[in-house]
Design a protein around this nucleic acid. Structure first.
Lengths: 254, 254
DNA sequence: GATGTCATTTCATTATTCGCAACGGCATTT
DNA sequence: AAATGCCGTTGCGAATAATGAAATGACATC
């Protein structure tokens, strides 16, 4: 494990739990020696990625992360382009809508608009969505590079509910159906009682870079709702792609 | 120089220039060997903080940064609490308003609402504002921990314009005036033709954690505008602090 | 006042990182 | 077509940075 990987894993741990963490807790859950952990934190503090409370000695994520994320957003305005579309879709459907972006680790939920209804689906920001267990993941897989798809199909598929897809064949069927129809459906695969409908967001090269999804409590879904949501998320996903890269991204750039 | 410091400096370079950078350029401007640079990038890619275009081999900042920044925002909702106040101040003043947060490197501008007027001040997101050359920096210094203030007063003060404050005595005077009045004024110290008025945002311990500022073209500022803006930014800064930490943070936590 | 926990520092050992050099791919130039 | 130059990538011995055990001091609890 490289030193930078260790340092970044500390950032992950700082992000996971409470807003602030003690050195000993961090060292314990990371599995590093206390001295090692502290040296890594000192390096991260010097770069502004971590801050330490002067009084309590507790560590927390630093503003340097916000800075880097803003610089990325300036270079590639994913949120600026996508958020209005997400809001519109949420208004149209009245259900929770969430937007996710591909990363090595999985799909990262980067924006959420929750339904105004009392019984609604909640999605934490920054959460990593598993590819095999969510509508967003399946929609993404259906339109991504073959190597990524094969890697996910070959990887283990942890079960989150008793409905989670657990084998490569079933997953491949769902992916094929999504590629054919342009949208995917997730039925309680990640959380019980939740049904989602998702569509991919395509990049300049025609491969998926993320997904947009409508998520609603199962009890509220009527016959026809899924098809209606499907058409809406497809349109929304396509509009985001067009706003980011211009009109009509085809399979493979010209 | 620690390995993690090198890796993070690469993230900085990726954020600075064009949206995508080649390995050779990165190695050159960072001063690392090509092999070293690449190994660091590979580590960063594995963690999702950097992405590489499969076709062009160019590197760019990755979605993992957005994830970490969102997790931080979840733990400490600075933007969620502050943005509405920034918007309100922008609406009230009709000028550009920007919000910044303290970091080891300087004040990071984390949100900007630009004036609707044609002649307006523009502030790039993620930019690091120098403490000695901006109204925000002086407002921050006036209400920060003594050690941070002394460190800035002792540090070199690069000149950005012919109006930039260049010596510790002058800066200390401005800071003292800001502490007395509750707000600061920046007169073309960072960019010519721009006047800013700023107030601190105080944390739970009574020390500054950031600043909020109104920035307008010098030619539009009338007599009385500065005092009017001063009162408004003080109120806005205080409201952000209250929204974040509850009512009435005094000097030093009880 | 004793005990336990915590953050921080030190130091010899070890493992990781480093930079040189070489290779193959690709484009432009001769 | 051959040659040149630049690029990204990889291998290997040398150099350096990271490591973990242990010691220290501060703090709170018992």
């Amino acid at each position: 494990m490289s030193t930078v990987a260790k340092a970044i894993s500390l950032l992950d741990m700082l992000g996971r739990g409470a807003p602030e963490t003690a050195l000993a807790d961090l060292a314990r859950s990371a599995g590093f020696d206390k001295a090692t952990t502290r040296r890594l934190l000192v390096s991260l503090i010097a770069q502004g990625l971590v801050e330490q409370d002067d009084a309590t000695r507790l560590y927390r994520l630093g503003a340097g992360l916000t800075r880097l994320a803003l610089m990325r957003e300036t270079q590639f305005p994913f949120l600026r382009m996508a958020v209005p579309v997400v809001e519109a879709l949420a208004a149209e459907t009245g259900e929770t809508v969430h937007l996710s972006e591909y990363s090595k680790r999985g799909l990262i939920s980067v924006h959420v608009v929750e339904s105004a209804k009392a019984n609604r689906v909640s999605v934490p920001l920054g959460e990593v969505l598993p590819m095999h267990a969510t509508a967003s993941g399946i929609a993404f897989l259906a339109f991504t590079d073959e190597r990524i798809r094969e890697a996910v199909l070959a990887a283990p598929m942890p079960a989150f509910t008793r409905f989670t897809i657990g084998d490569a064949n079933t997953l491949a069927e769902h992916v094929a159906a999504a590629r054919a129809s342009g949208h995917s459906t997730g039925t309680q695969g990640f959380e019980e009682g939740v049904i989602s409908v998702a569509a991919p967001i395509l990049g300049a090269d025609g491969f998926a870079i993320g997904a947009i999804a409508v998520a609603a409590p199962r009890v509220r879904i009527q016959k026809g709702d899924i098809d209606r949501f499907g058409g809406s998320v497809i349109a929304a996903g396509r509009e985001i792609g067009e706003r980011l890269f211009g009109r009509l991204p085809g399979r493979k750039r010209a």
